[in-house]
Design a binder for these strands. Structure first.
Lengths: 203, 203, 203, 203
DNA sequence: GATTAAACGAGACGGTACGTCCAGTCTTCAG
DNA sequence: CTGAAGACTGGACGTACCGTCTCGTTTAATC
């Protein structure tokens, strides 16, 4: 009932499959050869598309890249290990491509190099990052409901901790994301802060 | 005795003032028009220098930029407010240019955009960031000695927290560095973690 | 007997008015903004047509342009001033749009610029230029019959003289076609050559 | 004494050899593969130059092409066969590359196709075409002095005849320049017109 | 009237060339 | 040898346009 009567716009419709095809081509190039191989010509060629088709969809290379990175970084996972610590480790491993080589290579590249002049912020965040934040927030709230931890003092800060540390350490000291580093951030930062509230008032 | 007898190198000596002049030109352009205005030609022209003089001093634009950003972000501050919380807030405010408009604008730009293809990591970190880390570490250790807090479980993580959050929030949500945000990170993250160790074992 | 019984092809018939509409649009653009404004998209848009309708009628832009230029440059004129000189001046003035401002502007443009990668030759010549040549040839032959001149030694050369000079001078020295220049070519080239044959054998 | 004291402009001077190198590359491509092979990238690559060096010297492809065609079409020939007819045939054959296959191919290409949107006129004419005209004019004047012909009524027209016919016939009927066609134009047009003046007043 | 098949406006598509910009290097002349 | 000036190679970017294709719609001629 919402829009059933809207007549389609005139002219040949966009090929929806091409969108995905282009984004996939960009990610492949990124994963295979690094950011310097991701030129608009190369993406177009690999996608079997013309450059015009790229620029019809995205105003610039940056916007294409932003979309490529976010659309190909998965959101939907079902995580339920029974403990908050286990849930967090598992979901972050999933988000950062641990155990998925192509994905991981691309993520690493992106962390350090992708954001050129990219107005990364407004492009990526709204669509994917907030969705991820919501997922993690749900895990924490479930732990609260379950009685595992008390409600955190500052949930927003808590949710940013792991991605912030990963980004910072990659950018300042080239430290890659690993299973171990994720565990360290969860055990050393998130869990202590989450448990603090529950523990402090006890005595 | 070691140096005075060495005969001076032949030819015209380097103009030491030029180094600073070039770096200043780079920072001005960054502050005025953003990172995309910082081209080597533009820097050379504004500094009244030739491009060769830039490349004689730095191997690449990245290195020049790294130097420019770090040299203009001061390290040496004497901070002693009596409490760890006060020390941390003060030193971070100093590092991020709170209260210095030109500096602050440049830092904001840098946070979001500078790292182009820049191998930012190896250029900036060794020289400035580690010096800053050492400063902050000293503040924390002084607080331990003073008995204000116990020795942190994972000092390395603690030292990265504030800069990591600043970087992440700027990059993903365009949040600028303010006096308030620094206080929030210190109060909501660093201090709770530092005090946790001291508090937990008490009962 | 050949055509009348052929059943018309099935489907919607071509809109004959559209042909003229498209050609007119092309000529308008040419006259208003020069050859660089005559893109297939622009022609289609101005004609209120789709590009497919253009390409259904002409195999390429060149052919469309050739048609546009020739269809709008009239062939059929009745010229009979009594002298060959008068006939030639009059017909060339007609062909080159002297006294027709829109037409003349288009012709000027065409002379200098139209022939892009255009295989101008095979497209235009057969249909219009040869018709024009035939017209001029008739004028000359009439003058021969009338006894005004003897049969020229090399008629083919004679017929090309004026258009060749107009084309060349426009292309090499930007000289536009005017009433005066046509008169000069006729009086200084065509007439002397036509009369020569008649005069030389006299003594 | 004219400019000996002018100090050279600062900076690295243009590489004069590169100019010729680029023009040669353009001509080679034109001669070998036709006008469609003459892209700016291809010219730059063959010349071992960057595209910036092409655009530093010429504002557009058209201007480069105009220079290439004119600079490589020779002017200086010593022609003295003893008769005007012989001189003209010989110099035109030289100008149109008869007996020089690479040159001739390029000229043919140029006649029909090169001038795309090119403001051919102002680029080519002043520098080379007028020089050629002067050469031919000298031949005619020498014949006048020698008493072979009388002074022509309209010298300017005479000088344009052969190139105009060549251009026109190529463009409208794809007729290539040959030894025979040059002879035909000289014998059928230029010589009769030149001799007419001398002959007519006799009786 | 229903069917059919082509023409129609609109605009997306692949491809190709253009002209611009910038990093990093090289070359000149002056000090 | 340093310095300013600026030319050099190389390569990516974003634009423009051609000729083709694919939609949904309209229009005759036929059934």
């Amino acid at each position: 009932m919402s829009e059933p009567l809207a007549s389609p716009p005139p002219g040949r419709p966009r090929d929806a499959a091409l969108d995905a095809n282009i984004l996939r081509a960009a990610m492949e190039l990124l994963g295979e050869s690094g950011i310097h191989a991701v030129t608009m010509d190369a993406v177009a060629q690999r996608a079997g598309a013309g450059k015009a088709s790229l620029y019809r969809r995205w105003k610039s290379k940056d916007e294409l890249l932003a979309d490529a990175l976010t659309l190909h970084s998965p959101i939907d996972v079902e995580v339920d290990t029974g403990t908050l610590r286990g849930d967090l480790v598992k979901i972050y491993e999933h988000y950062y491509g641990i155990g998925n080589h192509v994905m991981q290579a691309a993520v690493q590249e992106m962390l350090g190099n992708v954001r050129q002049h990219m107005a990364w912020t407004e492009k990526v965040a709204p669509e994917r990052l907030t969705a991820r934040r919501a997922k993690v927030r749900a895990l924490v709230e479930r732990a609260v409901v379950r009685g595992e931890i008390a409600a955190p003092d500052d949930m927003d800060l808590l949710l940013d901790l792991v991605p912030a540390m990963i980004l910072y350490r990659y950018n300042t000291r080239s430290q890659k994301v690993t299973r171990a580093s994720i565990a360290r951030f969860v055990d050393g930062l998130v869990m202590p802060l989450a448990q603090k509230a529950a523990r402090a008032p006890q005595p």
